[in-house]
């Protein structure tokens, strides 16, 4: 059974004459990890702020966890945690004191606060640093403290805005693990990002934003089929080969020249056998024939390329 956690209909936000979000329809279900993708300024953060009731929509309706964020913001914010883009904490306070403050703002009963903070800090591996002022924290530690806040508050929905911006690869991996563990607990996670590999690996569904609209939305594999029409990417290195000889192989969608004697082949199925045969038949040197999966990066590039061409 799918229960919608967020339902937006014709959601619109204008700043003056500039349209930030344009008649957006969006439904996010309980327990999903949902990715909001798109270039900067595409309306991702504005959408998030409207979900939280931190910004007033110019038009349209939105319901978050069954409440109206505009008129019942406390009910919404009690159930939704938010980790803003490059989150800040009070630098002169310790990590633990920062959490204590939000615990008090959130009305967590005093007797439960300390144990909940400790549990949350253990989850994000910050116990050792908990008594140090946040000024001494690295960027990754701040992000983890932000996640600890969400864990401590035991919210139903976590909204993470560009959570891995500026994190080193190892911190990013640890961060992804944390997000997976949140999902495992039944939390709905909404994250915005332009790091597409990341989104691909953890998101159940994604929405591609462009100029305040959602261009395409759905499961990553579905998007690949719909946008690319092909899910298999083959790289072919063969000196002195003419790709005209590949004509007639069923399933090849397009061939892109990467360098002299190097091509990329997009296909709807694995066509390596036939390609190899044609290369050998043509008497060329087959140097490489490797299979890679199409990535969300390809979807993204193709989608926005299409937008540009259409424009």
């Amino acid at each position: 059974m799918t229960t919608p956690v967020i339902e937006a209909k014709a959601l619109t936000k204008r700043y003056g004459s500039q349209v930030a979000v344009d008649r957006l329809d969006l439904t996010i279900n309980k327990g999903e990890v949902f990715g909001l993708l798109g270039p900067n300024g595409a309306g991702k953060t504005t959408t998030i702020l409207m979900i939280l009731g931190l910004t007033e929509p110019t038009g349209g309706t939105i319901a978050t966890v069954g409440f109206d964020p505009l008129h019942q913001p406390l009910e919404v914010k009690r159930r939704v945690g938010y980790l803003p883009d490059s989150v800040g904490f009070y630098d002169n306070m310790t990590g633990r004191d920062n959490l204590r403050y939000t615990a008090r703002l959130g009305g967590i009963p005093r007797i439960a606060v300390d144990s909940r903070i400790t549990t949350a800090l253990e989850r994000v591996d910050l116990v050792a640093a908990a008594e140090r002022p946040v000024a001494t924290y690295s960027r990754g530690m701040r992000q983890r403290l932000g996640i600890a806040e969400i864990i401590m508050r035991r919210v139903d929905v976590a909204i993470l805005d560009e959570p891995t911006n500026g994190l080193d690869p190892q911190s990013t991996q640890e961060f992804l693990e944390l997000i997976r563990s949140l999902k495992a607990e039944g939390m709905t996670v909404i994250l915005s990002s332009h790091l597409l590999d990341l989104v691909q690996s953890i998101c159940d569904r994604v929405a591609l934003f462009s100029n305040g609209k959602i261009g395409v939305m759905g499961k990553v594999t579905d998007l690949m089929r719909d946008v690319l029409g092909a899910t298999t990417v083959i790289q072919l290195d063969a000196e002195g080969f003419d790709t005209a000889k590949l004509e007639g192989i069923a399933g090849i969608e397009r061939i892109t020249r990467l360098a002299d004697g190097s091509w990329r082949i997009d296909a709807s199925r694995d066509v390596r056998g036939e390609v190899a045969r044609r290369v050998i038949e043509a008497g060329a040197n087959l140097e490489r024939l490797s299979l890679g999966m199409a990535t969300l990066q390809d979807v993204y590039t193709r989608f926005f390329e299409g937008k540009r061409h259409a424009a």
Binding site: L54, F89, T102
Partner: peptide, 14 residues
């Protein structure tokens, strides 16, 4: 400037 505003306003307070 400390980037605490949006985090604090996302807490259940007005």
């Amino acid at each position: 400037n400390r980037r605490t505003m949006s985090r604090i306003l996302a807490q259940p307070i007005y």
